[in-house]
Every structure is written in structure tokens, then in C-alpha cells.
Amino acid sequence: MNDFNYTRVYSMDEALANVSLGKGHRVIAGGTNLIDLMKYFITTADELVDINPISEHQTIEELPDGRLRLGAFATNADTAYHPLVESRYPLLNRAILAGASAQIRNMATNGGNLLQRTRCYYFYDINTPCNKREPGTGCSAINGYNRTMAIMGTSEHCIAVFPSDMCVALAALDAVVNIVGPEGTRQLPFADFHRLPGNTPHIDNNLMDNELISSIDLPEKGFSSSYSYLKLRDRNSYAFALVSVATALDLEHGLIKEARIALGGLAHKPWRVQEAEDFLKGKQASKTNFEAAADLILQGAKSFEFNAFKIELAKRAIVRNCMMALDPDTQQPGAQPSL
């Protein structure tokens, strides 16, 4: 790591004053991604601002109108095991528990989960060109070993994927990100928080340098009857997703009132396709309809030399996960959804 000055801050105002000072400031919360990046010199800091001593935004609270507010500084583990998350938003519980390891979930915070960076091999290898790490140097993945890379929303400058599991569930649940900055607070719908790479792959999301995430709000509707999170990866546990799917269904008399399908491992942000969700509305919760929805979701897919398999894998994962959502008991180890 480079030399940096370390400052503890005890309030949001103090934190904002520190991050507003200019470039060279980095905020540390759980540190599970930041310290790793700093050890590789991918990220450097002149001043490291430790926000852990701040007592606000550490808790999970139900708001008077029924929404659930997830403090940005609450850990992933405390969030997953909150009784209201388990009972009303089990999809979020499962997505969090699908990610990382128990140790990392005990450290990592909710705000940090949104701000984690890609695990693209070339982004991590400082000896190779990477537009995300060093704008203008080129993308090594496009013509390189791109098996784990994106197939949706890529650009000629970057085909990295966003690695979070938690965020796939937050996208499906229509979460809202609360942000504080020098001019006060603002809210961003989850879909608008992360960005596609476009011409600026070095900018992962729409949080400004002088802003902080304070919390994430979940609408009251938690889809606790029909939900499922499926994660496909190279080993059974403690690996990033090749493809992951969060499905939340609202069913009435066997018909789909509302469907949410969000995908991870496919793009620079959690991926949702409105057209596919609209298609399912009012239809029967059947394998045929889910297959049609999967085709709609993947219709714009663009694969590269080594990741064409992801298109078929994603389609099958969507169908399987939607069938599992119909009966969350089939999410038990070894259980097979009735396909």
C-alpha cells in the first residue's frame, strides 16, 4: 500500500467535510475490497477516512410507512440475519448468504457492497492495459480470456461484470439508494445507481466523489411467498457468479400478477429487462412462459470468444429459478424443482 494519512471521523458531517476536500481521499468501512485493491496499488489514497466510528446508519429500521431502511454501515451479515429481512425479504437474505464467506460478510458493509469493484482479471493485473483502471489504455479482456466477462450492455471499452450478489436482489426488490452530499440528500432508484461502461468504464456508478451512501430503502413489498436466488459458479461456495438470478413473483390464482427477474454475472450492473417482466404479467406461471421470458431477457446478448456458454446458461438458470420461486421449499439442498 502507498503511504496514507489515517483519519477517524465520528459523524456524517465530519465525513463529508473530509471527502469534500478534494481528490486523494478514500473512505474505508469494511475494507474487504478496498484493502485488497490498495495492496495491489490499483487504488491509492493520500488520506484514508475511517467512517466506522460514526454511530448513525449502522442499523436496520422499519420506517412508519412500512419500508425497511438498511443502514449503509450495517454489515452484510447483520442485514441478512435481521428478523424482518429473513421474514419479509428472504430473497435478500439468500443473495447475501450466496456471496463471499462468513468472515467477509461479518466485515463488509451494505454501502461498500454497492461500491465494490469488478473482479476482472485484467483490472486486477496492473501489468495489462485496462480502461477501467487506466482510462485510454485499452481493454485486455475483449480479445483475451473472457470466460467470466459480460454478455449484456458491454462497450468496446470494457466488458467487466459487477460482482455483487446482494445487489442483484436489491435490484429485483426495487431498492432506493439514499445519498448525502455537500448540498444535502438525494435518492437514486437502484436501477440508476450503477452505470454501464460506455466511454467511461472507470466510473462504476453515479455516486459523486464528495458524496456518501447513507442507507438503502426497500419497498414494503418483499415477495416472501415466491422468491428464489440461484447462483451458478465454478465451485459450490465462495466464488463469484458466472450467472446468478434473483426471481420474485407475485401470484394470484396461478397467474403472475407481478414478476421481477434480475441477473448477476452478466453485465456491468445487475440486469433487468422490463419487456420480459411485462410479458409475464397476467400469464400462467409455467415453464413455457418462463422460457419465453428468458429469451426476451437474453435477446440482446453479445458474447465473446470464451463466454458464449453464458447465454444458454443464463436462459436455463432463469427458467430453473422461476420454477424454484414457485415453491421456495425446492431451494433445499439437493431438491429438484419440478421442471
Binding site: 441478512a80 440475519y81 429473513e86 437474505n93 448468504l97 450466496a98 462468513a102 421456495p328 433445499q332
Partner: peptide, 20 residues
Amino acid sequence: LMKEAKEGQASFVTADVRQN
């Protein structure tokens, strides 16, 4: 882990997290 299990914390392979 012993403490986590005692407190009833679920894992990704736990059947139904809705049951506390």
C-alpha cells in the same frame, strides 16, 4: 461458527430462512 449456529443463523444451504 459454533456461536453462529447456536444463534440460529442460516446459511445459503439452509432450507427456509423465513422460519426463525
